[in-house]
Design a protein around this nucleic acid. Structure first.
Length: 366
DNA sequence: TACGCGTGGCA
DNA sequence: TTGCCAAGCGT
């Protein structure tokens, strides 16, 4: 192994050994898929576009009906975009279909109906990124370039112990460097197919069957029992947007509060009657219907405080509005479950989220 | 660079 | 039920 700064590139003997075992596994275990029985770049291209982020079982019927309706790139180029989209219907990621149609016309009009024969040339076409361009280049034209899809990332990461984030740019560079060392000049097409198929069938994301794997003897993940940790994908934590509409029920100077339930933020702290919505509510009428559907008796004047509070948590952004519901002294009210009236003194001593505390102070209640 | 893009299968 | 994807790409 030699060190390239960030990753260890295995020596040529180890690479040769891995490739040999991989190829043997592939010959024995690969699926017979329609698009593997041709080198026609149009068909390979069609299959690769369809299979982007899509399972074989889901994409196969589409591959067949597209070939039936548009047997050649000329037929696809001559079609109306609307018809192409109609045929794509149900497969999702519809820009794939639009780009494919666009590219078919470009191939016909600017390339005389022939696809470029290198990954670099193919990359210039719309809808073809690094992976798809490399896949077509190797499958159709035998170019010795590595086609790195999600399966290949996983296999390389586990076998050779690459622990860089496969979603980061730096990580992608390291994987690409490794992949470039692995791809053989002899029959790169079968090698690429084999890597992808190996990832799809044997080195699967969850609970791979390592006891029947032919390369455990050279597998970093197996040796370190890290199959479930690799590949590393640093998930960008997604900030969820939530819209809170608090009903501050007031009666004789007391406020109705309740303890926060488990399995949500602020567990054990106290807040008001909460109606959560998927979008901000600005019209009191909308809130009224929400309230009545929730069974809260409407016996007072609902008044929104002017301001909408934004409260930021690690993984949530809360957009919070407060609505005062004043109950006149002569009325009684059936409070929803969990709510209890508390005096100002009691409220002062209750544990509350900062947001609630701030609100009460700004309203000069506390 | 980070994010939106669709659908169906699975635990 | 809900989250996590599955042969990525364009912006």
């Amino acid at each position: 192994m030699f060190n390239d700064g960030n990753i260890l590139i295995p020596d040529t003997e180890l690479i040769a050994e891995f490739n040999k075992k991989l190829k043997f596994w592939y010959i024995k275990n690969h699926r017979k898929l329609l698009w593997r029985e041709t080198t026609d770049p149009y068909k390979i291209w069609l299959s690769e576009i369809i299979l982007q982020q899509t399972r074989v079982a889901q994409g196969t019927p589409y591959y067949e009906k597209f070939l039936l309706n548009y047997p050649t790139v000329f037929d696809l180029a001559a079609a109306d975009e609307r018809d192409v989209l109609r045929l794509w219907q149900g497969l999702g990621y519809y820009s794939r279909a639009r780009n494919m149609h666009y590219t078919a016309r470009q191939v016909v009009n600017e390339y005389g109906g022939k696809f470029p024969e290198t990954a670099a040339g193919l990359s210039k076409l719309k809808g073809l990124g690094n992976y798809t361009a490399a896949a077509i280049a190797s499958f159709s034209f035998g170019e010795a370039v590595a086609a790195i899809d999600g399966n290949v990332y996983r296999v390389m990461s586990r076998i050779f112990g690459i622990q860089s984030d496969m979603l980061s740019n730096q990580g992608k560079k390291e994987f690409a460097l490794m992949a470039g060392q692995l791809v053989p000049s002899d029959d790169p097409a079968t090698y690429n197919q084999a890597m992808i198929e190996f990832g799809a069938l044997q080195c699967v994301p969850v609970s791979p069957a390592c006891h029947i794997c032919p390369v455990t003897d050279m597998c970093f993940a197996f040796a370190h029992n890290m199959q479930n940790q690799l590949p590393v994908k640093v998930k960008k934590l997604k900030v969820k947007q939530r819209f809170f509409n608090y009903i501050v029920v007031e009666s004789n100077g007391q406020l109705a509060m309740k303890e926060r339930p488990s399995k949500d933020i602020w567990q054990g702290l106290y807040d008001f009657y909460l109606l959560e919505s998927t979008a901000p509510i600005e019209d009191p009428d909308d809130l009224q219907s929400l309230i009545s559907s929730a069974g809260l008796l409407q016996q007072g004047i609902l008044k929104m405080t002017s301001k909408i509070y934004t409260h930021i948590l690690t993984h949530q952004r809360l957009h919070v509005s407060f609505w005062w519901l004043e109950i006149s002294e002569t009325n009684t009210i059936d409070l929803p479950a969990g709510l209890t009236f508390y005096t100002k003194e009691q409220i002062e001593s209750l544990p509350k989220p900062i947001l609630i505390d701030t609100f009460l102070k700004e309203e000069k209640y506390l």
